[in-house]
């Protein structure tokens, strides 16, 4: 519990993070809706989740890069407790951001956005996947700035090709088989499924996002000093 509270406090100590959580999603609420789908901001919010989760997970990455993790490993704290508490802390902050975004969408779009609870649950699975991806991505680098610079490019590409920043129906059918291997594909796919009322596809998106998250967590939680 101490680590959980500490993780939240450590993130909120930086004003940029508070602004990120509160202000960044607001412009997305004003993007108008396409015919036969949710307002585009609902899907584009996936990109905000991606960047937010990467920036929020910075303390864990810096603990490893600055060698603090070696001291933690020598202390009686279990690595699982340390990692789980931190990730839960970041997930809580992302949960607050998501809830605020959903409240904002209720105000901005009214009844145009239906099935808010399934959308929120899909965002939750997506943010778990993004946190796990950030964790495993950071293990590849020794400097957070290089890691962030390259992640910015990767995230933009994943969102662009995966249908987060471009509606899925605009992507050619021939590449769908390939982009299904990208974790970002399953957020817009799930959102389309909720809009169309296809609950099987919705649960499939959930399952695939969570399996992606598990794989990334297994890779990212490997101790590297």
């Amino acid at each position: 519990m101490k680590f959980y509270a500490f993780a939240i406090k450590e993130d909120l100590r930086h004003p940029v993070n508070s602004l990120l959580i509160l202000l960044l999603p607001i412009p997305l609420l004003f993007i108008p809706a396409n015919a036969g789908s949710y307002p585009f901001g609902i899907s584009l919010y996936g990109m905000v989740i991606m960047y937010s989760s990467f920036l929020l997970s910075r303390p864990v990455a810096e603990d490893r890069m600055h060698g603090i993790i070696t001291r933690i490993a020598a202390s009686p704290v279990r690595p699982f407790t340390y990692l789980a508490s931190h990730l839960l802390g970041y997930l809580t902050l992302l949960g607050i951001q998501m809830s605020l975004f959903m409240i904002g969408s209720m105000i901005a779009h009214g009844d145009a956005v239906h099935g808010r609870l399934p959308i929120l649950s899909l965002y939750l699975s997506f943010s778990i996947m993004c946190l796990a991806l950030s964790l495993s991505w950071n293990t590849l680098f020794r400097s957070f700035n290089i890691s962030f610079g390259l992640f910015a490019g990767l995230a933009s590409l994943l969102c662009l090709v995966g249908g987060v920043s471009i509606p899925l129906f605009l992507l050619p059918r021939s590449i769908i088989g390939y982009i299904m291997f990208l974790p970002t594909y399953w957020l817009p796919h799930g959102l389309d499924a909720i809009h169309a009322g296809d609950m099987v596809a919705f649960w499939q998106s959930h399952a695939i996002l969570l399996v992606f998250a598990s794989i990334f967590l297994l890779i990212g939680s490997k101790r590297r000093f």
Binding site: F181, Q204, S205, I208, F212, S214, L218
Partner: peptide
Amino acid sequence: NTAETLLFFLCTLF
């Protein structure tokens, strides 16, 4: 590729 095949693929990888 379908969601089922990908799910099997990812579960095996997991």
